[in-house]
Amino acid sequence: DEWTVEDKVLFEQAFSFHGKSFHRIQQMLPDKTIASLVKYYYSWKKTR
């Protein structure tokens, strides 16, 4: 599952609005599965 720079920026924006409500985040990133969002979240969180 490839994440473009745009995907990553959108994820951060969606996360700032919705927190860990992955269903709502998915509405902003409809091409990503919930599982993909959760997996990305945990790898992204480690870099914070």
Rank of each mutant, 00 (worst) to 15 (best):
K32I: 00
I34K: 05
D7H: 13
M28N: 12
L29W: 00
S16A: 13
Y41F: 05
V38M: 13
K32L: 05
H23S: 13
S36R: 08
M28V: 12
S21G: 00
T33H: 02
Q13R: 09
R24S: 09
K39N: 11
F17W: 06
P30M: 01
R24I: 06
Y41K: 09
E6N: 10
W44F: 15
M28G: 02
S43L: 08
K8P: 03
S21N: 15
L10I: 13
K46V: 09
S16P: 07
Y41N: 09
D7Y: 04
G19R: 08
K32Y: 01
K20N: 11
E2R: 13
V9C: 01
F15Q: 02
S21Q: 15
A35I: 13
F11M: 04
D7C: 11
T33N: 08
Y42S: 14
D7P: 09
H23P: 10
K39L: 03
T33C: 02
A14H: 12
K20C: 10
K39D: 07
L29A: 01
F15P: 01
E12A: 07
Q13K: 09
E2G: 14
K32V: 00
E6L: 06
T47D: 08
E6V: 02
R24D: 15
K45S: 13
K8W: 00
A14E: 02
Y42D: 15
S21E: 15
F17Q: 05
L37K: 04
F15S: 06
Y41A: 02
K32W: 00
L37N: 03
E2Q: 08
H18Y: 14
S21A: 15
F17R: 14
P30E: 07
T4C: 05
D7I: 08
F22N: 11
S43N: 12
F17H: 12
D31C: 09
W3R: 00
L37I: 10
K32A: 01
S36M: 11
V9Y: 07
K39H: 14
L10Y: 09
F15K: 07
E6D: 09
S16M: 12
H23D: 08
A35D: 10
E12V: 02
M28S: 08
W3K: 07
F11P: 01
G19C: 11
R48K: 09
Y42C: 13
R24N: 07
Q27E: 13
E12T: 11
F17K: 14
Y41R: 05
I25Q: 01
D7G: 07
R48V: 08
K39Q: 03
K39S: 12
R24E: 15
M28W: 07
V9H: 11
P30L: 00
F11W: 00
Y42P: 02
M28Q: 09
K32N: 02
D31I: 03
Y42Q: 13
V38W: 07
H23G: 05
A35P: 10
Q26E: 00
E2V: 01
F22Q: 00
R24V: 08
